[in-house]
Design a protein around this nucleic acid. Sequence first.
RNA 1: GCCGGAGUGGCGAAAUGGUAUACGCAAUAGACUCAAAAUCUAUCGAUCGCAAGGUCAUGUGGGUUCAAGUCCCACCUCCGGCACCA
Length: 942
Amino acid sequence: MKQTKINNYDHKKIEAKWQKKWEKSGIYKALDKSKKSKFYSLIEFPYPSGDGLHVGHIRSNTAMDIISRKRRMEGFNVLYPIGWDAFGLPTENYAIKTGIHPIKITKKNTDIFRKQLKSCGFSFDWYREVNTTDPGYYKWTQWIFLQLLKNGLAYKKKMPINWCLSCKIGLANEEVIDNHCERCGGETDKREKEQWMLSITKYADKLDKDLDLVDYLPNIKLQQRNWIGRSEGAEINFRLVAERFTRSSDLLAEARPDTRKSFSDYPPVTVFTTRADTIFGATYLVLAPDHPTLLDLRDKIKNWDEVVAYATETKKRSELERTVEGKEKTGIELKGIKAINPANQKEIPIFIADYVLFHYGTGAIMAVPAHDKRDKDFAEKFNLPIIPVILKESKKSMSYVMGVDEAAIESIGVEILRKTDDGYFEVEIPYDQLDKYKELIRKNMEPHFWNEFSTRDGFYFIFKHKDGRIEEMFLNEKTNDLIDRYGATFNDKEPGKEPGNVYSWIAENSFYSKLLIHSDQGVLINSGKFNGKLSSDVVNEIVQFVGGQKKTKYKLRDWVFSRQRYWGEPIPVVSCAICGLVPVPEKDLPVKLPNVKNYKPTDTGESPLAMIENWVKVRCPKCKGWAKRETDTMPNWAGSSWYYLRYIDAKNKKVFADKNKLKTWLPVDWYNGGMEHVTLHLLYSRFWHKFLFDQKLVPTKEPYKKRTAHGFVLAPDGQKMSKSKGNVINPDSIVKLLGADTLRVYEMFMGPFADAISWNTDSVAGSRRFIERVWRCIEKISDDKNNKNDELDRLVNNTVKKVSDDYEGMKFNTAVSAMMILVNEFDKAVSIPKSYFETFLILLAPLAPHVTEELWERLGNKKSIHLSAWPKYKLEHKNNSKIKIVIQVNSKVRDTMELTMNISDDKLKSLALQRENVRKWVGSSKIKKIFVVKNRLINIVI
RNA sequence: GCCGGAGUGGCGAAAUGGUAUACGCAAUAGACUCAAAAUCUAUCGAUCGCAAGGUCAUGUGGGUUCAAGUCCCACCUCCGGCACCA
């Protein structure tokens, strides 16, 4: 065996050496022209914060670095670029605090980040580095905005902004904590301000549908879909009438149709609903507290003051707070007006409540408490009628039995499916036993109970009053009117209670409410001529019947695009007294940020730019008269909405990117980023891309072919790392002390890539030991081809498969463990055949690029390991190898056998039965059956 | 409240329905050393047993199956996201 004398593993030397060599040779440079197939891998470009690189950055960057390096070895021309998303609030706030210009801060921070990233050995193509704050970059961000403006996708609208009453400045959502300003602690309010908006909602349909074209992780796709929130429904008008009379003792009066038509009518309220099929159950309307119709009705609303007070209170709170506040529903009835349910002409009350939002749908809903949880909560609180209109369809006859003895039920051969703590049985009754079962109930049910069962034809109810009197009713489309009658008479459950609708009573009983109070589709009841029909079949008919109109709505709202801030791209528009809003001519782009000393927002709510008179005052591009520049800037999202396009042609001065180059590289093949960006950022950039596609400026419908997400790296205490908590792990010190390779291995080994994981400094040692062990292997490399050994050969081959598959599936932790197992075997071996070790090094190279490159060179290789070919898994053909077969008796492991592969079942059975252990456990028992799982297991059932 | 994800040793975790706890960390004992560190060897879910071995364990309760961490039903807890989205 040839022994190679080696130095100790010196990560500092090795890592510096190869980083320098790689940079010099440019082996990670992407080629715009190449015979190879392209592969574009992308990470979310970092925000260069003053805190420096986070260990979380390293985890996600390493992941895509592994993919990129593997693709290169598989023969792809890979683009793995990097840049800086450098506009933003933290930098601006830091500038305000220190007086240092954001440009200087950004330069300093990006320099630090660049150095840190380089020290980790990522295979970025640094020649394409971009920076969103570079005028050469934001020129094109502004240009894209102008295209949006030209095409009617940008407009101005009054929107509420957060306003600090003491600082007198506008605040970002993030700066408002519990209605108080983050910095001064003073109270905040909402203020109306003209804002630039982008009509992303015009693309809602495409953004939703085209998710079918991309390969995003299922949960990411789901979140996008939920955010866009497409729902198909109908808009239906509810006529308003002046209140006729109020008689508090007559609860049913409001639901009774009115025959007199003497009151005057008002313009109707339009509601949006996805469940028009439930309209017969709509027992009240709810408007958003800021619904404009309220103002029109001002004179007719008797409790106007109360309404205004409620609306004002609601406005103060953010939607999030309204949500967090939780279960207790609040609202105010509009006294003096009523609405008419167009389905049954019943008069119903109208409320305002904060659970209805003005900007979704039409800002008004019809409430169907029987089939919507929130409506039900509200109805219960305000004591409003709950009228079920949909019966759950049942395929079997099911019954919930109460007040009947268990033995009695079983005596007629009915099986009890489930018993609950609160004393009822769930049973399933064969249809031919139904009559027998009813008889049993009548006889055995204790007084004061009632039982119900569902059948193919409807619901059957048996009630036993206190005096033993039995009332029965069958409920389906024909007999439905019985329910009203019964509801009025069945009142001896709780003698003190007002006679009420039986459904209210059902609603109070959790397991009955499952049958009638639910949000599923089913058979209609209480619905006039639609009774007995399947709700899903007749929705459209019902919409027609009530004069409604089918509509598709989206949750998605238009994008508030302006910020009253300094550190962002100026919006390239001029406001002229004569010509109105005039776009800055493209030849005058970029509109550069002026150099100022004061970055503080103004106390008028305008951007700091508004104070720079000689910048604001310009000639109108149209009429050449004096005009004012737009002083708002763009949000952070702007620059990050198209950066992947700029990477393709980062230095182009004529266009944002050359068409041919776009054609070469698009779409991004694999985009990995944080879960926190899968709604806003991902959606915004898809929106811009789709717009550019429609303008024929990019060649693909979608920007990203595949999107995956990583988990957070948390501090050792399980919390998010933050300077204020003092729990930040600095990657630099680990790179310095243990090396970038160790850090990379550890970050990928620490746990499942998609999960949030706490840092554990102790565990890093394991990764370092692993690399040292790899290092030591080189002492016993043998060139002897005859030295090959079958077992090691198989293990190497299996590791190739495991690691290849795991990298692709982002199961990096198990890939590392597979390589550890192989290295442990290498460690035990007397000598390691060179080819095995080389194969292993290639597998490890994407993960630990420096140490593998060094060892590769020491093995005598001239070309970089990162340019070698990815190993292929060899399908095994050997049938003679031995495997372990598990022997179970009654599913318990009792023995194992070493056998050759693919042994016949019969032979296996007879061999197994001869085993002493098996004989011991089987004894004289009769063997019922024997199960064989090929090459794995045999189970003898006795 | 809604949506998504997850509950397995002391810890991070692994497991196409087929030997639960791979791999790593920590811990304990031993070797080497004057000593320590490093390294190496061994042990390492609980419990009963001198041992062979048995029994019980994957959040809880049911179910399907020869066989369940994995599939189904109900529930509990934790984490993440949110715009109570009709």
